[in-house]
């Protein structure tokens, strides 16, 4: 996957992972892929719902050693 930028939100709790993701996304171009790393469990549901409601596409997400990783393509 051609990741344009990686955002580390590990250790941050709600709402910061989404606030930071949104800020990072605002600087990207349509089609760019952002990788987000988070440790807040709530981020899983919230990032998928946010991606949908803001027109981005959550391409994939997985958990690795307690870290949630998301790949979101800007819409």
């Amino acid at each position: 996957m051609n990741v344009k930028q990686t955002l580390d939100t590990k250790g941050l709790s709600c709402p910061m992972p989404i606030v930071k993701t949104k800020k990072a996304m605002d600087t990207l171009d349509s089609g760019d892929i952002l990788e987000v790393q988070a440790t807040d469990k709530g981020a899983v549901n919230d990032l998928s719902a946010w991606s949908k409601s803001s027109g981005h596409e959550l391409l994939e997400h997985k958990e690795e050693d307690g870290v949630f990783k998301f790949w979101i393509q800007k819409g």
Binding site: P15, I18, K22, D46, A49, W50, S53
Partner: peptide, 9 residues
């Protein structure tokens, strides 16, 4: 009422 916080950023 419900409005997700991420739609209010």
């Amino acid at each position: 009422i419900n409005r997700p916080y991420f739609d209010l950023l």
